[in-house]
């Protein structure tokens, strides 16, 4: 057992876990943030995507100890109080989700995508950038619409490299 501490959604957390504990299991079980999901064993579905130190990563493909000392943002930390993040709002407005299981990873991926592209996205880019996120319900049609709309609304300056 190792005591693993990190900042999750702005809150300092700490838990004793085995070194083999994946970050996603740490989030779901050790600190009970169950919004991050596991949909595959091969790092392909993206249901587990969170941000570690500002970058989208697959929390099923990272040990919790690797993230020790890092700052992690999960789907639970995206909204500001009752105010939804623009990507969350766009997913709702455009019916970008059905069963909701892939949705947290989709939204975290979309937020990262918009940040990296400074909001400058087109349909082909969005579809390509969703390569690591699998949805079985929506056929992606409305997810793509939601991301494009959120990107347009956010009009962010290009992310610094």
């Amino acid at each position: 057992m190792t005591t693993v501490s990190m900042t999750v959604n702005g809150r300092q957390v700490s838990a004793d876990v085995e070194d083999r504990t994946l970050l996603v299991d740490y989030l779901r079980n050790a600190i009970s943030l169950t919004g991050t999901h596991v949909g595959c064993d091969t790092s392909q579905c993206g249901a587990c995507v969170v941000h570690v130190d500002g970058r989208a990563v697959k929390s099923c493909t990272m040990l919790a100890v690797q993230a020790a000392g890092s700052s992690v943002t999960t789907i639970e930390g995206l909204a500001t109080g009752d105010e939804l993040h623009p990507v969350q709002a766009a997913f709702r407005e455009h019916h970008g989700l059905q069963c909701g299981f892939c949705t947290p990873g989709m939204i975290m991926t979309a937020v990262d995508m918009i940040r990296r592209h400074g909001g400058q996205l087109d349909e082909a880019t969005v579809r390509h950038e969703l390569e690591g996120n699998i949805c079985r319900c929506t056929g992606y049609h409305n997810i793509v619409k939601a991301i494009l709309d959120a990107a347009a609304k956010m009009q962010m300056p290009a992310a610094a490299e």
């Binding site: 790092s43 993206g46 995507v49 970058r55 989208a56 990563v57 697959k58 493909t61 990272m62 991926t109 990262d112 995508m113 990296r116 950038e129 390569e131 690591g132 996120n133």
Partner: peptide, 8 residues
């Protein structure tokens, strides 16, 4: 891979 894989 995909964007998340490229980050790691």
């Amino acid at each position: 891979g995909d964007p998340a894989v490229r980050h790691m």
